[in-house]
Design a protein around this nucleic acid. Structure first.
Length: 355
DNA sequence: GTAATCACTGGTTGCGCTGG
DNA sequence: CCAGCGCAACCAGTGATTAC
């Protein structure tokens, strides 16, 4: 079950799209073009009544209404059917992350515009360059690209924490042993890697960063591959979709281009990666492009962190891919602003209380 | 009697946030 | 900037149930 914040954001956006006068009215009326069940209506009413997310609900509703009016959105046409994906994940490879589907055509993703683009197994990023792949399981990336340093750190940790009867290599840890390790780290008191293990940890960080960057650059090969990777990174798919979102300070309304459109607007130039591991294993990426209209050159930046998400040696590491460029400056993300005929086309600012 | 399908389950992976 | 928590979807293994 989606949490209250997600539910109200998505449903209030849907009601804005549905063409209702206000969030309160719409909630009372249950407009027929929004296809959700009774339990969802009840839930929405309960969340609204609690009042905690009122500002968020109003902002989301305004986003939906804006989209309904905007020439690049529904342009004033009344939607017949709005479907909500609810708390289900959309199945399939390379699925557009749409929370709402309007008239089976317009896909809307309701987001808090997080800086995180992807969060996945490192091998998926660096070896498979995010292409759809049947391989579901990936080995521990640390062991794969820096086995010596990984092992040295593991053995150092066992010694420091005075743990007996543990397997020789971290790959053989079972869940009980991982729990023991986790508890021992906690008991040791330090947050993160204990200071005594600084040297072997730094060695691991340097090795993983370097090898990951090399692997990635090698897998990227030709510019055509690099361009595809950039599209995957930026979540540019073969159908256009909209992001109606709210970050901490303001509303964000974007349309995401298709590769076809992207090619007409931009010329891809290069995709470069570089190892940058100090605090934790990290690889920076930069894509360069040129705008066809005026020849202007631009860059998009981001970075990938390779990290344990559940304490050292407790499970394989994950790759968190960050976008460091502002969303409205990303090639292929088209801000929907200025051209609205509606009254509230300026960027709304809300104190997003509650959450 | 065997094969196919289903329901359950515990571990794993992915996601996004928050705390220091 | 780094670390890790909480949650939930996903996945594979297992045993039970149904179909043939």
């Amino acid at each position: 079950m989606a949490d209250d914040r997600t539910t109200i954001t998505e449903l209030a956006t849907a009601l804005g799209v549905a063409g209702a006068g206000s969030l309160q009215e719409a909630t009372a009326e249950h407009p027929g073009n929004l296809a959700i069940g009774n339990e969802s209506w009840e839930r929405l009413e309960r969340i609204l009544a609690a009042g905690k997310y009122s500002a968020l609900g109003l902002a989301a509703f305004a986003n939906g209404a804006f989209f309904a009016r905007h020439p690049a959105g529904l342009d004033g046409r009344a939607p017949r059917l709005i479907e909500w994906s609810g708390d289900r994940r959309i199945p399939g490879d390379q699925a557009v992350p749409a929370d709402l589907l309007v008239d089976r055509v317009y896909m809307i993703s309701c987001k808090y515009l997080s800086q995180i683009l992807h969060n996945t197994a490192p091998a998926r990023v660096f070896e498979e360059i995010l292409a759809p792949s049947p391989q579901a399981r990936h080995p521990d990336w640390f062991a794969e690209v820096a086995s010596r340093q990984h092992l040295a750190l593991y053995r150092g940790a066992l010694k420091l924490l005075d743990l007996e009867g543990m397997p020789d290599t971290p790959g053989w840890l079972d869940s009980a042993q991982r729990a023991r390790l986790r508890a021992a780290f906690r008991e040791h008191g330090s947050r993160g890697m204990p200071g005594e293990l600084r040297a072997p940890y730094d060695a691991l960080i340097a090795a993983v960063s370097k090898k990951s960057a090399e692997t990635w650059q090698e897998a990227l090969g030709e510019p055509a591959q690099q361009e595809r990777l950039l599209w995957r990174l930026l979540r540019i798919y073969s159908a256009t979709y909209y992001i109606l979102g709210i970050d901490r300070h303001r509303t964000m309304r974007l349309r995401v281009m298709t590769p076809w459109e992207w090619r007409q607007a931009f010329e891809f130039r290069s995709f470069k990666v570089s190892a940058d591991g100090r605090g934790q294993p990290r690889v920076n990426w930069t894509a360069r492009y040129r705008e066809r209209a005026d020849g202007r050159r631009g860059e998009v930046h981001g970075h990938v962190e390779i990290r344990w998400s559940h304490r050292p040696f407790c499970g394989p590491p994950e790759a968190k891919i960050y976008l460091d460029t502002r969303h409205d400056e990303v090639p292929g993300y088209v801000p929907l602003d200025g051209r609205s005929r509606g009254p509230d086309h300026e960027q709304l600012r809300f104190p997003l209380g509650g959450g």
